[in-house]
Design a protein around this nucleic acid. Structure first.
Lengths: 116, 116
DNA sequence: CGAATACTGAGCCATAAGGCAAAGTATCAC
DNA sequence: GTGATACTTTGCCTTATGGCTCAGTATTCG
């Protein structure tokens, strides 16, 4: 679980930066080289490469170098980490809503169902 | 759009920290006071309060003080920001998968469909 | 083979983030 | 009214982050 939490840390931290989110958006449409990805940004290439490294180390993308060109490909696993986290919160939320609905509908006083 | 991007920045940055994600998980089950939320963490209260401020300023939670107790309540809007972003990437991804399937199935050479 | 291209590594800087302790304020309860 | 409780503010420290420049390496191409 701690390992999962560390994984989640990297996955969510990677999304904290607008540059990296934009890169992910572009890569969702298909693979691209470093140079191609960097073109829309007013940023020095070594700075941009730092973002690519963050995305790669957190599992959002995979990169492969052929000759002098490194191509980036998006990975679904990290999407699933975020998606799973959202689903878990939604399930908790809707569980709470269900209980609230039950309370309102049946008009029965409900004991505090607070565990974990 | 720039305003939306700034909103997204705060929303995603708030998720970058494990303490704040844990707080959101707890609040998904229902409102709680600052003291109650802080209890599971081995952290000074002023440090914990900083996290609460981040979550509030980014729109993840709303807080209300009655007497000496401040109660936090989760807000759905930020969930929707993250959910929307994921859906957009999935749509881009699946659009690419559809085109790839089309390519493989029909065995037709496909021009580069690269548009903004 | 040398110039051009596409990264890559190293070092630096400014700012942000996340923690701490200490002290303060507002409110309850006895 | 005083002690206890629940934050709140301030200032400081360490680490992380995100940017820069410069130089280097590997590869292509004319």
């Amino acid at each position: 679980m701690a390992q999962y939490s560390t994984l989640a840390d990297g996955v969510f931290q990677a999304l904290a930066d607008p540059t990296r989110r934009t890169v992910l958006r572009r890569l969702s449409r298909g693979p691209a080289s470093i140079g191609e990805l960097a073109r829309p940004f007013d940023m020095a290439l070594p700075s941009f490469m730092k973002h690519i490294r963050v995305l790669e180390q957190s599992g959002w993308i995979r990169t492969r170098k052929v000759g002098r060109v490194r191509t980036c490909t998006i990975e679904r696993a990290s999407f699933d980490v975020v998606d799973t986290w959202l689903s878990e919160q939604r399930a908790l939320w809707e569980g709470r809503t269900d209980r609230l609905d039950q309370f309102v509908t049946s008009d029965i006083s409900q004991t505090k169902a607070d565990s974990q």
